[in-house]
Amino acid sequence: MPVIDIRDLRFAWDDGPALLDIAEYSVLPGERVFLRGPSGSGKSTLLGLIAGVLEPQAGKVEVLGHDMTQLSGPKRDALRADRLGVIFQMFNLVPYLSLVQNVTLPCRFSSARRKAAGGGDGMTREAERLLSRLGLSDPKMLERPVTELSVGQQQRVAVARALIGGPDIVIADEPTSALDAEARDRFIELLNEEAARSGSALLFVSHDGSLAGHFDRSVDLKEINRAKGGV
């Protein structure tokens, strides 16, 4: 059974033209999928729909067997908190939290994630383990304010946060667009490795088609989206 299953989805902002019109799109468990689309094509909106923070006008978005269009707001929030990890393009971190606190942030909102990460002290150790896997093990660095980290380091902290407590799905929205070529490739390798290690499916979205080679499967949003509302 796919972890993400989209059927006859239609979405428009307010009364505007349809931005997304997707007949069918799915991601299988543990699969690492690349979704290509230029900026403004609606890919971030699609991720919002999958994460359950946006609601479509029509169609079905099934995540981990739950139809997001049928779930209540709080249930969608709970599902996201418990089983989804999200990585943004940049500014992923909460400025007033430490590195480790940023990584354990999902455990504040989800007791399931908290338990899966080992709870209490175990949670902190798990965060440190993930950070060290991602090359952030220097104790001095762990104590620095997150705003002083380089963009590449911040993105790696975001990966650790998305992966803590082993979510079923990790969604990454252009996480490499602020990185240089070398850092980008290393970042994608790390992300792939860690997602595989925790058994999470990875949905990686970018405008840069050259990244497609890193993934099991690649889809162009243009091919599945029938709407002309996008730029």
Partner: peptide, 16 residues
């Protein structure tokens, strides 16, 4: 606003 989006993405409910 960014901070709020991060909190939402990491599982914060509107109530949070």
């Amino acid at each position: 606003r960014r901070e709020m989006a991060i909190l939402r993405a990491t599982g914060a409910r509107p109530g949070h």
